[in-house]
Amino acid sequence: MDAKYLALVQMAVGGGVMGMAYALVAYGFQLTYAAGKAVNFGQGELVMLGAFAGITLSGIGLPYWAVVPGAMVVGALLGWFIERVAVRLALKQRNEGWILLTIIVGLFALSSVENIWGREDRPFPVPWPAEALDFFGISFTWSELAIVVGALGMMTLVELAKRYTMAGIAVQAVSADPDAAELCGIRSQSAISLSWAVSGAAAAFAGTVIGPVTTVGPTMAAALTLKAFSVAVVAGLDSGFGLVIAGVALGAAENLSGYALGSGWREAPGLILLILALALRPQGVFGKKIIRKV
């Protein structure tokens, strides 16, 4: 194969892998949006906190297989906490205060991280070797493989749980109509809390798989929120696995445009596409069309 062509493919694949990570974070948006029509504008900070929790847990000597679930538990608790303090009241009052309150909680989290863990980027310790695998001339690190497997695995697991467990079905009922669900004896509030906890766990898990590739620091949060949010909205907030396609496309586009236009511009085409996609299909590329009823 032509070397230049191969280099492009390599770049697209590298970008696509990061795109899978965006999709995983975006999946967290989808979960909370389904349950309570709200998303966490501080989801990036949650990913960062998950990664730092992982670093601290391995710092005290826990093995990797215990670090990841540990970080997920921290993430779940934080997700639950955010729903409690920042979202519940605003949703009850049916206003958009949750956008502001989640930004505020994220801001506090960022400030805490800067002061507790410091502003420097840190590596995330992993048990596998650092060298790359070769797959038909395209190289792949174990950490990148972990992102792909982790993202797909996590999303599949949650989707299965949503369909085949009582709690999952209850969450779906609440997302269709919270009042009707309540009349059927489902505690809507618990279902919403549960989805925020799962969303938080997914974000923390994303932190543990992204961390080894990008290193972990306070600057990762804002960029991740924007990208994951772009993926979620472009795909549609109810698009299911449409996220993965949108995520991979955005990641690959980013890397390729960074190559073609210079690294400073790498995010620009994705953002322009995002605004256009929103203008043409506000409900998302894979979203369901909304019919206005009066």
Partner: peptide, 18 residues
């Protein structure tokens, strides 16, 4: 022109991208 047709989180996101 594109953003004002949007509402809520979608509007917020398009302005954030801008």
């Amino acid at each position: 022109i594109p953003a004002l047709r949007l509402e809520g989180p979608q509007f917020a996101l398009s302005t954030l991208s801008f």
